[in-house]
């Protein structure tokens, strides 16, 4: 579904990604692990088109999307739950949700019921401002917003980081649910090895801006992963 070949990108003068290659098959969950600062979030920002691809190619399905900006990528089917959630703070919960329909081609005005059913707390908070929600509630809102347009590929950047344990469970269930439904490919950046083990179809390990190990999880020695994660 998503294919990266030798992607290079970064901020300003500095290069962060130095040739990342990756393949994400349809309806599979691909986990991306690595220490802080190795370029996982930069890769996410590059995939959404917030950062330009300087070298390499990216394709989505059959389509070459290397030169597309974030607007076209979103309409092309890339959904994004960013690190820090990035809820619009001065917009109500309902408005935040409706913005999730923006990528829909053709346009849609009705928020899908089945997505809303995954997050029963959200309808109770329709008229509260996004900025007033707790971290966990914002994360649920960010998931619902990203799922509304039924993306082909969903990018999840540390979705359980800094969130109260009760909601972590719920979010992990949602990710399992997405996997079970089999309509969306997922790239998941995650620190919790335990959770990665339970959902990943395939694992990439990043270090210093490139992929240093990859494999189906059964075939790969988990201790090797731990090595890359310890400082």
């Amino acid at each position: 579904m998503l294919k990266l070949q030798g992607i290079e990108s970064g901020y300003g003068e500095s290069a962060v990604l130095r040739g990342v290659s990756m393949v994400v098959d349809p309806a599979k969950v691909v986990c991306l692990i690595g220490r802080n600062g190795v370029g996982k979030t930069t890769l996410m920002r590059t995939l959404t088109g917030q950062l330009k691809i300087r070298q390499g190619r990216m394709s989505l399905g059959e389509q070459e999307v290397t030169g597309w900006d974030s607007v076209k990528r979103a309409r092309g089917g890339i959904g994004y739950v960013p690190q820090g959630r990035e809820i619009f703070p001065q917009l109500t919960v309902k408005e935040n949700l409706l913005l999730g329909l923006e990528p829909c081609v053709p346009r849609s005005k009705v928020f899908p019921e089945d997505v809303l059913a995954l997050f029963p707390v959200l309808p109770q908070m329709y008229h509260r401002q996004g900025g007033d929600l707790s971290g966990g509630q914002q994360q649920q809102l960010a998931f619902a917003r990203a799922l509304a347009s039924r993306p082909k590929v969903l990018l999840l950047d540390e979705p359980t980081e800094g969130i109260q344990p009760s909601i972590v469970e719920e979010i992990q269930d949602v990710i399992r649910g997405i996997k079970a439904k089999g309509e969306t490919s997922v790239i998941l950046v995650e620190q919790s090895i335990e959770f990665v083990r339970s959902v990943a179809d395939y694992i990439y390990v990043m270090d210093k801006g490139t992929v240093v190990a990859e494999g189906v999880q059964d075939a790969i020695d988990m201790e090797q992963f731990e090595h890359y994660l310890t400082v």
Binding site: A74, E86, F88, P89, E95, L98, L99, E102, S149
Partner: peptide, 21 residues
């Protein structure tokens, strides 16, 4: 108007939602 407020509050994220900033 909703798009406008979204862009003014968080330009990058608005773009990632397919709003032409």
């Amino acid at each position: 108007g909703r798009r406008m407020r979204a862009v003014m509050q968080n330009r990058n994220m608005a773009g990632c939602l397919g709003i032409s900033t």
